[in-house]
Write a protein that binds this DNA or RNA. Structure first.
Lengths: 205, 205
DNA sequence: CCTACCGATCGGTAGG
DNA sequence: CCTACCGATCGGTAGG
């Protein structure tokens, strides 16, 4: 709890943020009004503005909070496994778990990052790039030969595509759960990665 | 060209639609004004309304047009190859090519479909589901055993994830082109698909 | 923490 | 009476 502020101030901020994330995920940042955020939070609009300076502050908080959580996951997962295969499986499982818990925030990050101004977008995307780099290091450890063809990052992005896309088609109450799909993604990616052929390099004169 | 309408009427409609798709892709449907669409099209707003009834008609036209093109691709690709492997490679290549040509429309389809009303969204998503079903049939032909575990559609959606995500990280002028990445996706997916293990089925009493 | 408002801009339409 | 457009402005609502 913050100094000089009433007990529950931070809790209220978190509740507002979760409601805003749900609304932004559903109707987009531009398509959501502060009246809607206030109503969903059980507050008047004036009170809402007591907790957040403006609508934009909600967007920054949602997106930045989410990428920082992702960054934490990468550090932990890499530390607790020794082989690249093991690291990749843990990375995939943790990332899927995080998305399962933060679907709204994830959707806001992927779809509304365009509404951040240049400085904030750069800061958020730089953290996201570090997350990707963490995965890419393991990809390159698994197939060092592909890095010569600059395929380390593209292959990592194909993996992120599979995972980032999950929330568009998986239903939270479906027969297939997030803990079922993570090993399927791992199997597919690890076996597929072994088979990828490096395209012949263009000689640069 | 339509009956009773001046030559160029349909061309003007197409130009407006392309400009609207570019703006919606950049700032979202809700974040784009009809003034912006009019300006980008070189028309007054009143003239813009001569070509499209309202802003919503633009969204319907963009999304529906795009899924209908995707649907056409699936039919052609499956017809011109005999083996499932060959069909899958052609499907992937054609889908990537289509996305390369219609990046704006693709982005609008994936991010702004939420602004369609129930009836229009159902119609668009039903066509999209047919596209997915076309891919899924080839996936199941490659691994019929996985259909028992209901993994045909999930694996197809992992493939769509890789492809649908391309436009978020590939740069049109980058060293890696869309024609370079399609075979990489095919290699990864086809080899990965062979290795996926079916999870043991839960016995339903 | 609320009611009452503001400057501006929204999607859409008037007359000619 | 049609189409193809224009400058100006409508009623409502957004963020603040």
């Amino acid at each position: 709890m913050g100094r000089g502020r009433h007990a529950g101030y931070d809790d209220q901020r978190e509740l507002i943020l979760a409601q805003a994330a749900a609304l932004f995920a559903k109707t987009g940042y531009a398509g959501t009004s502060m009246n809607q955020v206030a109503e969903a939070s059980g507050l008047s609009k004036a009170t809402l503005y007591h907790y957040y300076r403006d609508k934009y502050a909600l967007l920054v908080s949602i997106t930045e909070g989410h990428v920082l959580r992702l960054q934490g996951i990468v550090g932990e997962a890499v530390a607790e496994e020794r082989t690249p295969q093991g690291q990749m499986r843990v990375l995939i499982r943790r990332l899927v778990e995080e998305y399962a818990d933060s679907q709204n925030e994830h959707r806001v990050l992927t779809e509304d990052v365009k509404f951040l101004d240049d400085a904030d977008r750069k800061r958020v995307l730089d953290i996201e790039r570090e997350v990707v780099a963490g995965f890419a290091r393991v990809v390159i450890a698994l197939r060092p030969d592909l890095e010569e063809a600059a395929l380390g990052k593209p292959l990592t992005m194909l993996l992120f595509g599979m995972i980032n896309w999950l929330f568009t088609w998986m239903k939270p109450d479906g027969a297939l759960g997030y803990d079922d799909i993570a090993p399927v993604v791992s199997d597919l990616f690890l076996a597929g990665l072994k088979a990828v052929k490096a395209p012949h390099l263009q000689a640069t004169p």
